[in-house]
Every structure is written in structure tokens, then in C-alpha cells.
Simulated scan of single mutants.
Amino acid sequence: MTTREVVGRYKGSAIGLGWSLFHPILLLAVYTFVFSVVFKARWGATGSESRAQFALILFVGLIIHGLFAEVINRSPSLVLANQNYVKKVVFPVELLPIISIGAALFHAAISLGVLLAAFFLISGFVNWTVLWLPVVLFPFLVLITGISWILASLGVFLRDVSQTVGIVTMVMMFMAPVVYPITAVPEQFRPWLLANPITFIIEQARQVVIWGALPNFGGLFIYLAASSSMAWIGYVWFQKTRPGFADVL
């Protein structure tokens, strides 16, 4: 079903799955031009990095936020778009968010491949610490799953949720160190950025992919504990509200 989700999204288009490669490259080019050329943003305190290095650092944040936004933005319509599974077939509807996450991971993997290829061309090597990236992403995926269960349920009863979620994910992008370093934010506002669930994962992903350092295992353990609680709450909420899906649909 995940494969069908990925292939079906590009069915009938001339480029097909090529869009999954073209889209992140185009997005990266636009953001790099706007922030490094127009706004002349720099990541390090000395501003000594090249535009190519700035683009790599930026791309990590875009991949993490893109993974989050793709799943969360689709969540409110998951049950609505698969009404036949709710009304006619004995089907574990709670798997729909998992299928959506699988499709989002496919696109994230394509983007990561582009990132690592560009990193190798620029630096001549790839940090071995990139092997820790799945460990960094796992707690994040657990959190996304819990949120997706809640939103998929709410989307059945409150159709305005899908409109609201799109705005929230856009705000979360600019309230996280995606296009700017967290050190550029005044001290009094940094707690707001740290409260954003994608901030810690973006920082840890940059640690292992760009800087070649080990992740913060203690922080990841705490994040996993909080994510597991959210996933449990989301699953319980989804199962409690599930009997009402068929009546509403």
C-alpha cells in the first residue's frame, strides 16, 4: 500500500517518480538563493562558509521539516480519502498513518541521497556518523505517528482541521532552525524554538550528517520517551473515536 501510495501520486505525469527528485532540488535552489544571496545569511559566526556549504546545512532542515509536513498535512484527510476501508472492509484503519509515513520516508530518502551526493562532491567524503541518522529519526517518526493518529481522527469530525494544519506546519518551519542557526535568535526567544518538536531533530541530524559528530543520546532517549507517550495517546484516541467514523462518513 505504501508503494501504491508513492506510485499513484505521480501516475499520469510525464516525469513520474522523477518529481520526487526534481522537487527537493528545486526547493533547495530557491531557498539557497533567497537566504544566502538576497538576505546574505550565513550559518557560522564568522560567515566563512560558501554558498554550497550553506545549502547543505539548509537542506538538512528542509528534509526534516518536509518529512514532518508531508505526513501531518495529509493526516486529516487519511480516513476521508479511504472511506471504503471504514465502511465496507474489515481493515486495520490505524495503519493508514503508517502507510503515509512510509511514503514520506521514500521522498526523504531521495532527498537524503541528493544531499549526500552533493556533500561528497563538495567535501570529497561523507561523514561515517551519517549511519546514526536512523537512530536520530526513529523517535521523530514515533512522535509523527502519534500526532497523525490524532489528526486523522479529528479530520473526520472537524473538516477545518486540514486547513489549520497547513498553517501550523508552515509556522513551525520558521519557528525552527531550518533556514537560520538557533544562535541567531535572541536568548529570550530560544525556549520557543526549543519547544518546537522538529528543532531538536534538525540539530541532531546536522550533527551526524554535516558536522560528523555523534548524536546526543541522552536527549534522544528523553525525546523517545515523550514521543512514545504521544504515540500511545494518539493510538488510544484513534481507537476510541473509530466507532464513530462510519456514522459520520
Rank of each mutant, 00 (worst) to 15 (best):
T2W: 14
R4M: 12
R4K: 13
V7Y: 04
R9C: 10
K11I: 12
G12W: 05
G12M: 02
S13I: 06
A14M: 15
W19L: 00
W19M: 07
L28D: 03
A29I: 07
A29G: 05
F33A: 15
V34W: 08
V38D: 08
V38R: 11
K40E: 15
K40H: 14
A41E: 11
T46W: 08
S48P: 02
R51T: 13
R51A: 13
R51M: 15
F54T: 07
L58F: 04
I63C: 07
I64T: 02
H65I: 11
L67K: 03
F68Q: 06
N73I: 03
S75Q: 04
S75D: 02
S77L: 08
L80Y: 14
N84F: 14
Y85L: 10
K88N: 13
F91R: 01
P92T: 08
P92F: 11
L96E: 03
S100A: 03
A103E: 11
A117R: 04
G124N: 05
V126Y: 04
V130L: 00
L131P: 04
P134Q: 01
V136Q: 00
F138H: 09
F140T: 04
W149Y: 09
F157M: 10
D160F: 06
V161N: 04
V161D: 04
S162N: 14
V165K: 11
G166H: 09
M170N: 15
V171I: 12
V171N: 03
M172N: 04
M172V: 03
M175K: 07
T183S: 13
F189K: 14
P191T: 09
P191L: 03
L194V: 12
I198T: 13
I202T: 05
E203W: 10
Q204K: 02
Q204H: 07
Q207L: 15
V208H: 00
V209P: 00
V209W: 03
I210R: 02
G212A: 02
A213S: 12
A213F: 14
L220M: 05
I222M: 12
L224S: 11
A225C: 14
S229M: 15
A231P: 03
W232L: 13
I233Y: 09
G234T: 00
F238A: 12
K240Y: 07
A246I: 09
L249H: 10
